[in-house]
């Protein structure tokens, strides 16, 4: 059974890496959760974000950061579930509940 992987994204220029790692991990049967914070919440508006939400098991963003980046909390990014516009608790879940951790 493949290990699970949690990815914490803090860099706004790494969508290609997030997609590449997620696809590779899913191809190995891994469970993948991704959490975006601060300037990386801009990536929720990346054209690839809806696809990421489809292939990953769990995608969440920090809603406080998203609002700080100038977006409305009511503007739910395409592909994301509204309840996944969440808090830093999501980062804790990645560390506690997933076998492997990667920050990007």
């Amino acid at each position: 059974m493949a290990k699970s992987l949690g990815i914490f994204v803090t860099n706004p220029h790494v969508m290609h890496h997030v997609m590449g790692v997620t696809k590779a991990a899913k191809a190995k049967g891994s469970k993948v959760k991704i959490f975006f914070t601060w300037t990386a919440t801009h990536l929720a508006k990346d054209p690839q974000f809806p696809e990421l939400c489809k292939i990953a098991d769990d995608v969440a963003i920090c809603v406080d950061s998203y609002v700080n980046m100038g977006y409305s909390a009511d503007d739910v990014p395409e592909g994301l579930k509204k309840e996944k516009m969440a808090t830093q608790t999501q980062h804790g879940l990645i560390i506690e509940d997933y076998d492997c951790y990667l920050n990007l």
Partner: peptide
């Protein structure tokens, strides 16, 4: 510097999660 306050906020977030 532009990431300092949010990084500190993230640290607090993990402390709240019992780390």
């Amino acid at each position: 510097k532009d990431y300092a306050l949010d990084g500190m906020r993230s640290a607090l977030g993990l402390a709240v999660e019992n780390m």
